[in-house]
Design a protein around this nucleic acid. Structure first.
Lengths: 214, 214
DNA sequence: CTCTTATCTTGACAGTGTCAGGATATGGAT
DNA sequence: ATCCATATCCTGACACTGTCAAGATAAGAG
């Protein structure tokens, strides 16, 4: 670490041209450190879990010093806040992916959204927990608030589109999708989680349909 | 801290009788440190949350040195494992409390268990997360495993008693109770969470009944 | 009364988040 | 083309954390 500093001080800079695109060159300015840190943080969460998350380890993973994240995110809470906002967008994208291949009728679309909800939790369990259970992100942050509100709005729209009329309709669909997602992501509901993908999806569809309005 | 040590070394022990039950006496041996640490850990979780939990702070809260917990629990994971086992027992007790005041028919008993499930999550949100989402307890621990299995068995018994016949019945009831509990405990489902207690319970009953078999 | 054992303390170590201050590169103004 | 304000990144330090090793103290058995 810090080899570039040695190189700068010990060598004579004017004797060699700047290796602008050398394969192993690490410039002082990263270029897009903010995005790299977010990606590294997501990897860190996936590998070491919510409790083992370390800001210094994220910085090392991105190949920068331990204090580099501060300038882009302030502190660890800031980094996790930005990651949560990005996570909510991926969360909505997972639902949209399921809706795109589902029947166009409102009930099928609502069930597809639920399957996407669960897909995301199974694919990124720790990120899912960051969105729904963690206290580390700053949920008063405007960007995160907007992303979270978009996810909630999408749910309400789907429920009302499928004939939902009151808060009980919304809450029932939301709770059953969220409960399945959380229990499956935590590996607690093995009676469903140990099924092969197709059988599991079929089982989830029948369960979700119970909570539908009508 | 450590005042008793100064007292022992600087004073002349034979000049004063041992203040065996002095009001501010802190004996070298705590007496029931294990239980005191568990209680302190629960307070610590409630006040500082899962992410702010600190073993040293728990020790300080119990009035003991920072390494004292090691002898009783090994490490932090051991303490949280024991706390989780105790938590699962309280979790079952919360369900039993609701069942005791509910109608005796199986469907009402099942709904009551769901309300107790949610009661516990609202009363001890961080402990609820320790049981269901945390990776810190050692879930291969025999005591914790038995306590967790007892909770699961109780759920299955309730569902089968109410007419449940397959895994879809179990999963639906479990998921809707768990989803409501988790979202309410995290303060995410404000459309239900902001209701006064009685109206909220009535709403929860109608929602849970949707997932019931038949 | 002595000795073994359980309990608790102190001190040290590496790792963590955060802050202050310094080094370096970038882009615009001159 | 040069200079400088700013953004970006680094080093070093601090308090705090979990864990380990070693010692001090109490309780109980013989």
């Amino acid at each position: 670490m810090g080899w570039y500093l040695r190189e700068m001080t010990q060598d004579m800079p004017h004797l060699r041209p700047k290796p602008k695109s050398a394969p192993d060159a690490r410039p002082y300015h990263h270029g897009d450190l903010r995005a790299a840190l977010l990606a590294a943080a997501e990897d860190e969460l996936a590998e070491r879990g919510m409790e083992g998350f370390s800001l210094r380890s994220v910085a090392k993973r991105a190949g920068v010093s331990h204090a580099a994240p501060a300038h882009h995110f302030g502190d660890a809470k800031g980094l996790l806040t930005a990651l949560a906002a990005e996570g909510f967008r991926q969360f909505l994208a997972a639902q949209a992916a399921r809706e795109a291949v589902a029947e166009p009728d409102p009930a099928s679309q609502l069930v597809a959204a639920g399957l996407g909800y669960i897909d995301f939790a199974l694919a990124r369990p720790t990120l899912f927990r960051l969105l729904w259970q963690s206290e580390r992100p700053d949920f008063s942050d405007p960007d995160l608030g907007q992303a979270a509100r978009a996810a909630y709005t999408h749910l309400v729209d789907q429920v009302t589109g499928a004939g939902g009329r009151n808060t009980a309709d919304e809450a029932a669909v939301w709770a059953i999708a969220h409960g399945l997602a959380d229990l499956l992501a935590a590996g607690r509901m093995m009676s469903v989680g140990s099924l092969p993908a197709e059988a599991r999806d079929a089982m989830l569809v029948t369960i979700i349909r119970r909570a539908l309005p009508d």
